[in-house]
Design a binder for these strands. Structure first.
Lengths: 161, 161
DNA sequence: CGCTTCTTTCAGAAATTTGTGAAGTTAAGG
DNA sequence: CCTTAACTTCACAAATTTCTGAAAGAAGCG
């Protein structure tokens, strides 16, 4: 066993373990597996064919998974110059910012809460509870962007540019 | 239409709309609906029978939903004194702290990442990427508790004790 | 104790979700 | 243009999840 050949089985174990956690947190199985595979690849990028082979899934499954991941900004698509092959890349920093972009989710929660507030009346006990919940989300929303700013600083210090 | 009778249809609209958002964010349907119903109730608490009637679901469905919600600390169970009826309550402040308890989720992600780091080797490109990811989660974990502290202060100011 | 009321468990029917093969679309490269 | 490689879409089979009715299990109260 050569030392610089990645241990395919160790990689696979990680991919499946990490994907399982993502699934448990609500992500669909295929996007989770594809994402984990990209995260653990040395280049941080793979082609559809490579993904299909490593994960033993059909091109259709790869296609569906990467579409989802691209839409949610967890990976970006790149065209390999001079080829119709595409590569899917996890951008070291971009992806966890995307994770934080549950902001979109929070926004929709806020929308639903605001409507409820209107139709139930702000002066009812239920209305007051919902107003406080809404305030919490608004607070969090503001805090998150400040936190990401601090992270960038912290990251710079720890990992260099 | 009397003014102090809650408009059942408006409540229902809110419940279903808010629950739909929770579902979209990964929560199961019944827990989401039950939770939304509790949130929009004036008392912030309902019995199993009331939940079943309002949501048009079986006792079995209520039972499953509240078990999940109790496990994840989104609601607490209370025994109605002198009765075998139970009430399920959303504690104004307790529940969104529970939401923040995605911390448990993050902890498990960290676990998977650490294992991957070991088996892939910290000195590989993939290893470095995972180390940075891990550092991000560790950073977030610390920030979240500080944020909740600030929220409590902010809440005090805005809503009184 | 036994009756009654409420809750939980469980097996299964129904609905939904998931992943595939196959056909369809696009675009590079001769 | 035509060929061919790469990706996407779609209909369907399989697997999984969800919710229910029915039966069993607790716990108050007489």
């Amino acid at each position: 066993m050569s030392e610089n050949v990645r241990d395919a089985e160790a990689v696979s174990r990680f991919v499946e373990a990490f994907a399982a956690q993502l699934v448990e947190a609500g992500m669909q199985r295929m996007p989770a597996r594809v994402f984990a595979a990209l995260l653990s690849s040395d280049e941080g990028a793979m082609s559809a064919a490579e993904l299909g082979e490593q994960l033993r899934i059909s091109p259709a499954a790869v296609s569906g998974a990467v579409r989802y991941l691209a839409q949610t900004h967890m990976v970006s698509r790149e065209r390999e110059p001079g080829s119709r092959r595409e590569r899917y890349r996890v951008h070291g920093d971009q992806w966890y910012e995307a994770l934080t972009n549950r902001e979109a989710v929070i926004k929709r929660w806020e929308g639903a809460l605001r409507e409820g507030l209107v139709s139930l009346g702000a002066e009812t006990p239920a209305g007051r509870r919902m107003a406080e919940t809404l305030a919490f989300f608004e607070f969090v929303e503001g805090e998150v962007s400040a936190m990401m700013e601090r992270w960038r600083v912290h990251r710079e210090k720890t990992f260099g540019s």
